[in-house]
Write a protein that binds this DNA or RNA. Structure first.
Length: 502
DNA sequence: TGAAATGTTGGGGCG
DNA sequence: ACGCCCCAACATTTC
């Protein structure tokens, strides 16, 4: 009897899972295995809340597997040792896993492949990073041409989506450990069923291609007739409205495949009632392409995880003020929109993307703190924390990355807040001290006259902090420092660190 | 997937 | 009627 191991990493789903399908096709018996890797559990980038989300996802997967004659074998240890043991115990002839391109994943899989017959298959992305390259084989550094090349590749269709297997034969009695019980955030219940439900809510009828096998709560009243995906272009930047799909944690752990999301997005463009709706669906699809762009960047340039992609901006003299950093982390900067966003992150494990850009610009350009500090804090807090997307976003904000924002693009936290949280509802939701501040002062409460502060029960410097930095002054300081770093590199380019380390 | 500084235009108030 | 100023609104340039 032929035995295959299905090694799960960040593909916690049964539907559209190419590794699972390959394992089932190659053997009579399949062992679904998840390895609790001490390297990842002890990493400085680990997030307790993301682990809780992962554990809950694994428990849900175990339940789904048991309904199919199988179960999840969780083991703790170094992956190549654990998998070698399991191959020995079970006589498996092959291990299938979904390819992952982060630097650690590549090293780990190389070690595993040296010990067991490991086969990596696609699924993390719609198009594998090595297939979205220029004619000469070199990777893209700029999003727009990457996106064009991505869209020019054959688009997956409904017919490509693999169904959830009805039965997975697994021999009973294989030793496994139980997962730690950690309290998870209520806003993001883990699991494939929840991911599908969210996609249905967001994309409406276009999500029917997912099939109904996975979703337990298939109540049709949750399926809107004019779904958000058709208003996404107008609403996605609004921090005070639920204008996004909130699917990022699910994509992060593969509770939804990128291909499932892309097929739904494309169907939405086809089924859109008008040009504006169609454009909205394209904008959402473009977000999926951004995800694959950053996965591709990290795959081709693994050094970006530690260094600026642009060597001329590697040697910024950061202030790195620990007290300012602590204010930023906990949401006590005195800038309401920044504080609301940082508290949303700590309290829910998620942050609106517009807010991510605002707080990143604030940390780097206003507080002049190394973008790597922000990158690490985000990884420690975000349920969707992913090395590629997070690094890409931070280097974009810092102006140091591929196709990054120009260094002189500095967000004004008050202007951004007025545009994308016009009534201040987002701020009031996450910063209760400001609950009674009148709308005209909500984004710049330090401008409140004393009597208004008293009436709003919000004395600046007592109930809510005064701004920890003056934006105009900070902006001038950063413009000068970035310009000087660039000029210094121009005259003395040897001091910069290497650009590529392939 | 900015914002601020600077430039231009045109309407209205006013002497 | 005319020039002058102010300034909002918009456009362009610069960081």
């Amino acid at each position: 009897m032929r035995v295959a191991i299905w090694w799960l990493r960040r593909d916690l789903r049964l539907s559209d899972n190419q590794a699972l399908a390959a394992a089932l096709a190659s053997a009579e018996v399949v062992l679904p295995v998840f390895v609790l890797d001490p390297v990842l559990l002890r990493s400085p980038y680990v997030a307790p809340h993301r682990l809780a989300f992962l554990y809950e996802g694994l428990r849900q997967l175990d339940v789904a597997l048991q309904a199919r004659g199988s179960y999840l074998i969780v083991r703790r240890g170094v992956p190549h040792e654990v998998l070698a043991d399991l191959v020995g115990e079970s006589g498996a002839h092959v291990v299938y896993a979904e390819a992952d391109y982060s630097p650690y994943a590549v090293r780990r899989d190389r070690q595993v492949a040296a010990r067991v017959p490991l086969r990596l298959v696609g699924g993390l992305t719609v198009h594998a990073p090595e297939t979205v390259v220029r004619a000469d084989g070199n990777p893209y550094h700029v999003f727009t041409p990457f996106s064009r090349a991505w869209l020019a590749l054959p688009a997956p269709t409904e017919a490509d989506l693999l169904p959830s297997p009805a039965h997975i034969p697994t021999p009973p009695g294989i030793a496994r450990v139980t997962l730690p019980v950690v309290e998870a955030f209520p806003d993001f219940p883990a699991g494939e069923a929840e991911a599908h439900l969210r996609l249905r809510r967001f994309a409406g009828a276009s999500a029917e291609v997912l099939g109904h096998g996975v979703t337990s709560a298939s109540s049709t009243d949750e399926i809107p007739s004019h779904p958000l995906i058709y208003r996404y272009a107008q609403l996605r930047d609004r921090m005070d409205l639920p204008g996004t799909s909130q699917l990022s944690p699910y994509l992060r752990f593969g509770m939804l495949s990128a291909r499932q999301a892309a097929v739904v997005a494309r169907r939405a463009t086809e089924q859109a009632p008008d040009a504006a709706a169609r454009q909205s669906a394209i904008v959402w699809l473009t977000e999926l392409i951004w995800r694959e762009f950053y996965i591709s960047i990290l795959a081709h340039y693994p050094h970006v995880r530690g260094q600026a992609f642009r060597r001329d901006l590697e040697d910024i003299p950061w202030s790195n003020d620990a007290e300012q950093f602590a204010r930023w982390c906990t949401g006590h900067t005195g800038y309401p929109v920044v504080d609301a966003a940082m508290r949303q992150l700590m309290q829910s494990g998620w942050m609106h993307n517009r807010a991510r850009m605002i707080v990143a610009s604030f940390l780097v350009k206003d507080l002049l703190i190394d973008w790597r500090w922000g990158e690490r804090w985000f990884m420690q807090q975000l349920l969707d924390g992913d090395p590629a997307a997070n690094n890409g976003g931070w280097q974009w904000s810092a102006g140091t990355g591929t196709d990054a924002a120009p260094y002189f693009r500095i967000f004004n936290p008050v202007t951004q807040a007025k545009k994308f949280d016009p009534a201040g509802d987002y701020v009031r939701r996450w910063v209760p001290e400001l609950a009674q501040v009148p709308p005209e002062y909500i984004h710049a409460p330090w401008q409140m006259p004393a009597e208004v502060q008293r009436a709003a029960r919000c004395r600046i410097g007592v109930d809510y902090p005064a701004p920890c930095v003056d934006h105009q002054t900070a902006r001038q300081r950063t413009l000068a420092i970035y310009a000087a770093a660039r000029a210094s590199h121009k005259h003395n380019p040897g001091t910069g660190k290497r650009k590529h380390n392939s």
